[in-house]
Amino acid sequence: MSEPILQLRAVSKSFGAVRVLHDVDFTVRAGEVTALVGDNGAGKSTLVKCVAGIHPIDGGDILFEGNPVTVHSPADAAALGIEVVYQDLALADNLDIVQNMFLGRERGRSWLLDESDMEQAARRTLASLSVRTVTSVRMPVASLSGGQRQTVAIAKAVLWDSKVVLLDEPTAALGVAQTRQVLDLVRRLAEQGLGVVLISHNMADVFEVADRIATLYLGRMVAEVPTKDVTHGQVVELITAGRSGDLGLARPEAAGVTQ
């Protein structure tokens, strides 16, 4: 088992009176796909946004490569090597693939961008991910299919010297063939030594690519287990009830007290 690259310890987060995350522990290991599952409102997206620096955390620690870090902005997260692929992809339709991949981090001087360098780097990254479905890196994103957009968003995340990639529902809006492509890509990222976090509702996807499964239930981390040790049914129970046999919350009474 490889070293943890990103660790969350007792992280809490509230929005006003609503406590969304309760002392959440979470570990991401290099070279592994960690699936983060949970019902709607369990706090998955909030957890990702805390790691990404979009929401400040209220309590607890974030450790990156063993060192405590503070992440105040997306730029901080990017500097550490944490990249997030959001559910809505965050691509600008009117820009082309290269421009999107380098958005906010353009190369060259601010008064003369280095288009050649960016175009070559974008093409190398797409090639190293074995992306073959995009005909030209100068196509505007508006003309791409859903799977191609997802591919570009993922390629954008790994273009940098990134160590952890968080994918928020990457296959939610995709068809069968496109889901296949994206899952292959996710697997390839882990093989390349990155820590990958996959948020998904689709159990088939999770069991196919994830090495470990972390389950959130009403803002609590109820289980972090290797995929091979659990069954489909157990994970569903963890998601819906917060416990399954020995896994999850200790007693039924405890699960009922959420505030």
Partner: peptide, 25 residues
């Protein structure tokens, strides 16, 4: 192959970068 910038994560793991794959472009 430009060496001005550190290679991205994807490149590091696939040094022989399979540019031939990007044939259509």
């Amino acid at each position: 192959t430009s060496t001005e910038h550190p290679p991205g994560a994807a490149e590091r793991a696939a040094p022989g970068s399979r540019q031939g794959d990007f044939g259509i472009d």
